[in-house]
Design a protein around this nucleic acid. Sequence first.
DNA 1: GTCGTTATCTTAGTAACTAAGATATATATC
DNA 2: GATATATATCTTAGTTACTAAGATAACGAC
Lengths: 155, 155
Amino acid sequence: MSRGAADKAALIAALELALRRMSAQGVMISQAVATKVGLASTDLECLDIIYMEGPVTAGRLAAATGLTTGAITGLVDRLERAGFARRRRDPDDRRKVLVEAMPEAEARIAPLYGSLQQAMQRVYARYSKAELTLILDFTNRCQEVAVQEIAQLNR
Amino acid sequence: MSRGAADKAALIAALELALRRMSAQGVMISQAVATKVGLASTDLECLDIIYMEGPVTAGRLAAATGLTTGAITGLVDRLERAGFARRRRDPDDRRKVLVEAMPEAEARIAPLYGSLQQAMQRVYARYSKAELTLILDFTNRCQEVAVQEIAQLNR
DNA sequence: GTCGTTATCTTAGTAACTAAGATATATATC
DNA sequence: GATATATATCTTAGTTACTAAGATAACGAC
């Protein structure tokens, strides 16, 4: 094996470990934020889905999280009770329940991510557009791999 | 704002979203793996810590996960019962309990990550050493930010 | 209108968690 | 060396989020 190949293998090993740690830290951050706003971390995860997708049905939340619909009932109850979300019947299909974020919910959660976002902005500032493009490209490829892997594991 | 700056802002926004998604997917992967080996996802997280740090005390696991020592007692019971780890008294300080992985545990878990690792190797193969260095650098900076953020949130 | 399907909720039971206190060992003080 | 304090884990009782299975209500096809 050439010198360069060995270097690359070491680089990849370091990157693997770093990605693994980053993943674990992601869990810890959302856990800490959830605790601070008085929610279970699953509840915050669902609220996150609601922000990314807009009002969603209870069934959609169950599918996205892998929880049963019964668990989602309790989860949405907690989100409602804490004032982060509310239920609304879908006028087009009255079996469905749309869960939507309360307007003021974001104002209560965003500040907790403020310091993280600022720190990340300082990280982003270190890189050129070309470099950020490369990093985004890598991240997107990781995502594709993750999506396929999750599907395969749950098969 | 110049054209280039707007591009960069858009790039950063895309990267933020991608990182957020990647973090959520990390949770889902470890959840799926844990279910497959018949463990709670917290149990697998602890097993991961044991692999990364070697034999650790129950207290260290409590600190690393944020769980109470009582919860760790039950967690280690489950790991022992499932044959993934075992307790051993620390000969130097007999109050301490060292938790170590059973030699055969890795052989039961690693295969579940095999397909992920192979897919990731194909991703890595797309990049040069210089590019991988850049990505590793970025990942490490993210980690530093995460460590500080977690400490601040739990303060 | 009736039947099968879909979406959510309800109920009963389970498992992991916390908080507080018990136990055993270690360390410091006199 | 005996006593007091601190540390590390375990135990117990009670809480909470979860699953599984079935109830309820609304939709769609015939």
